[in-house]
Amino acid sequence: MIKGVKNIFKDGVFQDNPVYRQILGICSALAVTNLLINSFAMSLGLIFVTSFSSLTVSLLRNYTPGHLRMMVQTLIISAYVIIVDIVLKAYFPAMSSALGPYVGLIITNCIIMGRCEAYAQKNKPLPSFLDGIASGIGYMLVLMSIALFREFLGFGTFFGIAVVGDWWTNWIFMIMPPGAFFMLGIILWLANTYIPAKDEKVGGAQ
């Protein structure tokens, strides 16, 4: 059991990382990574939605008719996203307006649907829940590493705290869209070069 849990996390976070290995969920990975704090909030939201949707899908897997399962999954995911949206609006209004429509877009984040379809549909509730958390952490890892560089180079700050002196010139380019594309491209390059794929045929990203 312990070994199984370890494998789920190893796969979800490194070897089968949803972002750099499966190229899923990159819309939000690009959009919210101009600040570390935004990426952090977004990742927590995604971990919550992925893990609980996987849990629910897995619990209902024997009662869901095959041809309706996509619809059921979408509705389950939407319900959890609504919870995240309401909580953000009520307790963190500033964060809610900074993330804007990207909170709602968690619904179409392919990571969640992918995990529900590929794992939760065929596995028991507890492993599915952990698998959701693992994929969410994998997503968080990539988002935070992009945001670390973008925030540092673009604003000269770390979580909003200035870490460099007056001599620093901000790279405005890094906080604009092209910076996001370049950073994610570079991260994909590094990941494909240094983190071995589980087996060769999964390698070469499509």
Partner: peptide
């Protein structure tokens, strides 16, 4: 390592 999605980005 850059082939596919990397260079596209």
């Amino acid at each position: 390592g850059l082939q596919g999605a990397g260079v596209t980005l």
